[in-house]
C-alpha cells in the first residue's frame, strides 16, 4: 500500500501501479493532477491579471548624511517646497526626466507601469557618487573639494533614472560591452534631457556629463565628454574609437570607459540628423536589445530601427546613412547598410 509515501514516487511508477489495481496510487495520481491543474490555473490568472498601474509619483528622502536610504521623507508628489535646495532640485529634475520619457516616448515612469520615483539625497558624508540600485536613486553631496551635490545635476539625475529604464527594457548586463552600452544609454538620455532642460540647441550644447558636479578645484571640466571622449579631465581615459578599446578588468571591464565609443557615435549622429530623431532611434533600439547585446548587436539594431522609423516617415530619411557613417567613424562599421 502506498498511502502518503506515494507522493514522492515518480508519476510513471504511480501510473503503472494504478494500472495494476492499486487504488491508493490512483488516488494520489489524481490528487497530484488536480493540484498541478490548480497551480496552472492560478498562474494563468496571475499572468492575465492587469498589473496595478502607478502614476510615477516622486518621493524624496533625506539620508541625513548617514549611509542609509529612506531615512526621512521630505517631499512627495504635489508636496510643499522644502527649502532644501538639493531636495527641491531632486524633486524637480526627476519630474522633468519622468515627463520627458512620458511625453516623448509614452513611457509611464521608469518601468512603464508607473513605478514610484524615489530619490535619496544627502547620502553619507563627502560621498562622491550617485547610483541606481534596482529600485531607487541615491545621491551624495560630494566632498566639496572636487565634487558637489550630485542630486542637483539634471544630467546625473537623468543618467541614473535611465539606468532604471534600461533595467526594465533591455536589462543590459553590467559588464564588458553590454555594460558599456548600459552606461552609454544613460549618458545618451542624460545629455538629451540636459539639453531639453536647458533649452539648448545643438550649437549651444556642451555634450558634457557631470559638468555641474565638479568644482573649480577639480582638474577638468566634467566627468565625461560625449563630443570628445577622453578629454573631460586629467583622469579621463575614455576611448573614442575601437582602436583604443579598453581590454582590462577594472570598472566591470570598462563599463564607464568603453562607453566613450558609442557616445562619440551618438554625438556624430546628432550632428547629422538632430537630437530628437536620434533619441527616438536610440529609445526604440533599447526596447529591442537584449541582456548580453554587444557593440555590433547595437549597431545592427540601430540601423534596422532607423530603417523602420524612416520608412514610416517618423525620422529623417538620411538616418540610416547618418547612423552607419557615425559608427564607422568610431570603428564600428555596420555589417549590412
Amino acid at each position: 500500500m502506498c498511502k502518503t509515501k506515494c507522493q514522492i514516487i515518480p508519476p510513471h511508477i504511480l501510473e503503472e501501479l494504478a494500472k495494476r489495481g492499486n487504488v491508493s496510487c490512483k488516488k494520489t495520481l489524481n490528487d497530484t493532477g488536480r493540484i498541478a491543474e490548480r497551480r496552472q490555473t492560478a498562474l494563468n490568472h496571475l499572468l492575465l491579471r492587469n498589473p496595478i498601474l502607478g502614476d510615477g509619483d516622486r518621493f524624496v528622502y533625506d539620508c541625513e548624511n548617514k549611509y542609509e536610504q529612506r531615512v526621512t521623507l521630505v517631499r512627495k508628489e504635489n508636496g510643499e517646497v522644502t527649502g532644501d535646495v538639493t531636495a527641491d532640485k531632486a524633486y524637480d529634475t526627476s519630474g522633468f526626466v519622468r515627463d520627458y520619457f512620458r511625453e516623448t516616448f509614452g513611457l509611464n515612469s521608469i518601468d512603464d507601469n508607473g513605478l514610484d520615483i524615489i530619490s535619496n539625497i544627502h547620502y553619507g558624508e563627502n560621498y562622491n557618487n550617485a547610483f541606481w540600485d534596482g529600485d531607487e536613486m541615491t545621491y551624495g553631496d560630494g566632498d566639496g573639494k572636487e565634487f558637489t551635490d550630485f542630486a542637483s545635476a539634471i544630467d546625473v539625475v537623468a543618467h541614473e533614472l535611465a539606468h532604471g529604464v534600461t533595467q526594465f527594457l533591455a536589462n543590459l548586463e553590467y559588464q564588458s560591452q553590454s555594460g558599456a552600452l548600459n552606461e552609454h544609454f544613460s549618458d545618451v538620455f542624460g545629455t538629451v534631457i540636459k539639453q531639453k532642460y536647458l533649452n539648448q540647441d545643438l550649437s549651444e550644447a556642451d555634450w558634457l556629463i557631470g559638468d555641474s558636479v565638479v568644482t573649480d578645484e577639480f582638474p577638468g571640466v566634467a566627468i565625461r565628454s560625449m563630443k570628445a571622449p577622453g578629454t573631460a579631465n586629467e583622469f579621463d581615459t575614455q576611448p573614442d574609437h575601437m582602436d583604443n578599446y579598453y581590454n582590462g578588468t577594472a570598472d566591470n571591464q570598462g563599463v564607464h570607459i568603453n562607453s566613450g565609443i558609442p557616445n562619440k557615435a551618438f554625438y556624430l549622429s546628432c550632428l547629422e540628423i538632430g537630437i530628437d530623431d536620434c533619441a527616438l532611434i536610440w529609445f526604440e533600439t533599447l526596447k529591442s536589445l537584449w541582456r548580453t547585446a554587444n557593440f555590433n548587436d547595437m549597431v545592427e539594431t540601430l540601423v534596422s530601427v532607423a530603417r523602420d522609423l524612416a520608412s514610416d516617415s517618423r525620422i529623417s530619411d538620411r538616418a540610416v546613412e547618418a547612423v552607419s557613417k557615425s559608427f564607422s567613424e568610431v570603428g564600428l562599421a555596420p555589417i549590412v547598410v
Partner: peptide, 14 residues
C-alpha cells in the same frame, strides 16, 4: 554589512 546588500541590480556602484 551595508543595508544595500540585498540589492541585485546595481548601477554606478563603487
Amino acid at each position: 554589512k551595508s543595508n544595500l546588500r540585498d540589492k541585485k541590480v546595481f548601477r554606478d556602484g563603487q
